[in-house]
Structure formats: structure tokens, C-alpha cells
Computed example of a mutant assay.
Amino acid sequence: MAVLFLWKAAAFVQKHRTGLLAVSCAGLFGANLSYHVCPEQTFKLWYQCWTRGQPAELSEKLRSLFSDVLQDVGVKSTNCYQPFAAFGFHPVSAGIPWLPAGSLVGLPANFNSTAEDKQGIVNRVIMINGKEVDWESKEGLTLKEALIFSPEAQKFAIAREIVYLQSNSPVVYAAVLPVCLAGTCLSGVAIKQLLGLYSGPMVFRCIYNITLAAVGLIGYFLAYDAVSQALDYRSDRQVAIISKDYAKGGVEFYNKVLSRNRTLRTLLGKQGEKMYAPSGNLFPRYGFRLKHAPYTSRRDLIINILRVPQA
């Protein structure tokens, strides 16, 4: 009975493979883009910072800073970008500016901090390996210093998220999987016809299909990581060329991110050695995969931009 069902299913797929491929690609594209279409109902609920059981309000200082960055980036429709208070220590973003829901950019509490006033850092409890961070210890002082950014570094980090959304990067990300799926299926059919596998034994076709699926999956991972790194570099480059202050802010931002990661490597012990390299870069989580460009290379890219004589 099961063999008969599989046979009928295979015949159905063979007969309607073009339509099924189109529906599958459209479904994958929509699924990957879903939380960018409705960021208020999905993304914001996940990243919203809460205090005393209520959503945290964004300070006027950060709202003003966000407005200044929008103006520097050259955003015309400022209503398409809305800030909110997010947890964590870096800005986050989601959405597509030209859709009705617009885009959201989450700003962390430590962006309220300055060298003189460290509120937003020391008034927060951070647990590492089940222990609260002692802000007065050597590692605590280093971590605290790494979490305090100058206004230029803050502007760079915020502008990078805005440029990322402005250049339709979420759409590019969402298109990688359906494009790889379509390419794998179409090339697989063409190679089958070229090799005459359709008229050959079924066992050969099964082995070929399994091999093709494995190659397609590896190709998707490599393509996704390559696109991700290219978008990282593009966003950094576009923000760094706004002005020399933004470029200097970018160098400071990545230097402090690297410093923070080195400190976390020490605080986390063996787990930290698996997550962070001695330089402060992230180790790949899944073997050969490197989803984001290394922080050192992103910093060096901005340093090279600063070295180029201004026209």
C-alpha cells in the first residue's frame, strides 16, 4: 500500500513538477519574508525591551539621535522608519520601508550611556555562566568600557541598520533559498535528460536525486553566507562614505565589539573559547559556515576608506 502511494505521488510530482516548483519557491520566499512584512506583530514582540512588566520607552536622547541619522543618511520618507527600545547591546532592524507596515529599528539601552553616566549598563543585571557580572572587576571594567560608544559610533551602528533596510537587503535574503531550489531542480532535470537517466534503472535515479539534494543544500548554505557577507560589507561601505566622522565611528564600533568578544571569551571559559576567536571574531557555529563577515575585516574595510584621499 505504501509503495503504491509513493508511486502515485512520484507520478503526480513528475506530471506537475513545474507548477509545484513555482508554488514551492513562492511559498519559501513568502515564509522568509513574513516577519519583515509585519514587523510590529512579529519582530518587535521578540526584541522589545521590557521593564517592570511594561514595554520600555525610548529616551528622547535616542529619538533625537535616530532623527539625526535619518537626515544624514538622506531618508526622505522618515515615517517609514520607526525606532523602539530593544534588549541587547546592538541595534537590530526588520521590515521593508516601501511596504505599508514600514520598518522598525531597535535601539539598545546602553546607547544612552556615556563615559560620565553609565546608566543602561551598570543598572542592568548580566548573568554569565550563572554568575552576575561584577562591574568593578578587571573583566567587568573592560566589558563596561566596550559597551560605551561615542555618538559617532552610535550613529554608525544605527545608520548601518537603516542602510541595510533601505537597500532591500531582507528581500535579497529571502530570495536566496527559492533561487537555489529552482536552480537545483532545473539543473537536475537538465542533467538527467543529458545523461539519459529517465530511461535507466530507478536505483540510479534515486542515487542521483539524493546526491543532487545534498549538493543543492550545500550550495544554498554557501550562497546564503556569501550573500550575507556581501550585504554586510556593502552596508558598512555605504555608511562609512557618508562622512569621515561616520567612518571613524565605524572603526570605534568594531574595535569595541572585538574588545567585548575577547572579554566574553575570558568570562565564559571553555564555552567562550568555542564561540570567540582570540581576535574577537566569531567562530563558525556550524563547521564550514560563516554567516557574517568577520569584524576585523569589516573594520579594516572602513580603515581603508579613511586612507583614501578625499576628492
Rank of each mutant, 00 (worst) to 15 (best):
C49F: 00
L70S: 00
V92K: 02
V163H: 00
Y246R: 09
V227F: 01
A146P: 07
R265A: 01
Q119E: 14
F12C: 09
A22G: 05
S279W: 05
F283K: 15
C180K: 08
K76L: 14
L181A: 10
K256H: 10
N261I: 01
K274D: 09
I305Q: 12
Q310F: 08
Y35R: 12
F87Q: 12
K270Y: 12
F111G: 02
C185V: 14
T42I: 10
K118A: 13
L107I: 14
L21E: 07
G200S: 12
H292P: 02
G216F: 04
T42F: 14
L143S: 03
S64M: 09
E152P: 03
E57Y: 11
S228N: 10
A115C: 03
L195Y: 03
A226P: 08
S137F: 03
A31C: 00
R298F: 02
V172M: 13
E161L: 08
R298P: 03
H16T: 15
L58A: 04
G280S: 05
L197H: 00
L212R: 07
A94S: 15
F84N: 04
L147R: 02
M1T: 10
G249A: 06
V251L: 05
L65M: 02
G74D: 09
A101M: 14
L107F: 08
D68G: 14
F89H: 13
L186S: 11
A2V: 08
K8L: 15
N209P: 02
S93R: 07
